[in-house]
Amino acid sequence: MLLLQQIINGLMMGGIYVLVAVSFTLTIGVLNFLNFSIPGIFMLSAIMAWRALENGWHWGLAIPFGLLVAICASFVVERFTYRFMKNVDHEIPLVSSIGFLILFENLVLVAWGSDQQKFPSLIPDLNIRAGGLIIGIGQMLSLALALLLVIGISLLLKRTQLGRGIRALAENAETATLLGIEVHRIVPVLFVVTGLLTGISGILFAMNYQQVSAAMGDVVGLKGIAAMVIGGMGNIWGAIIGGLLIGLTEVLSIYFFGADKVDFYVYGLFLVLIILRPQGILGSSAATGVKL
């Protein structure tokens, strides 16, 4: 029974990783750009929502405010990374996005210090108890929200004009331009979408674990990268599987082997997969496959 409880907790945590992994996978799949600023944006949205709540704002205003900051931050990252990435080595935008991660974290440290702050619990602390299992309503809602968002993104990509543009860009930027797709308009929108997704995951994390800190994005962000790779880079459905799998691996390795060994198993799985199956569990062949 305890094991089953751990599996449930793992899936709940996995929901957060799913959203972060989708953000990573969108920028990798479309632009072949590993956006390291995502953990910073994750943290920024939660911290800004926390500040707004501390100043007495209603949560209905505080949460959109956090999301707005996340979107703006993501937009600024686009201006200074992707725009300059033409004709340079592929590691350059990655390095500038690391610059943004360091910038965001240290700005927050300057303003509010490194202490872990308490984030008020916005969802009533209700639990469903079924046959000895405890399922938190808040966590369940956020897992459901994460899955819904991913389905939404996937519909957006499949059904809308914007989605078709993004998929064309993912296939081949040059051909997309020739076919009249305005790449310079689509890319900023893509960053707005990933900023929003990352922001939502940051606030969900803060609500579920009732804490925020300047460093909160680091561990989640790195696990999000692992989730993306395991599911298959550039594959949205893969991000779901990867995220949930990382959540499960994490709690199960804590359960069976102890907390110190978690990273060994999570990143060990990541390392073995990227060598043996770089396209991930769901990804099609990396060289020729259809992305997104």
Binding site: L34, E91, A226, D263, F264, G268, F270, L271
Partner: peptide, 14 residues
């Protein structure tokens, strides 16, 4: 490329 960067990242963590 980026796959190698990620693989070395995972190796460092391991």
């Amino acid at each position: 490329g980026i796959y190698l960067a990620l693989a070395t990242f995972a190796l460092g963590q391991v």
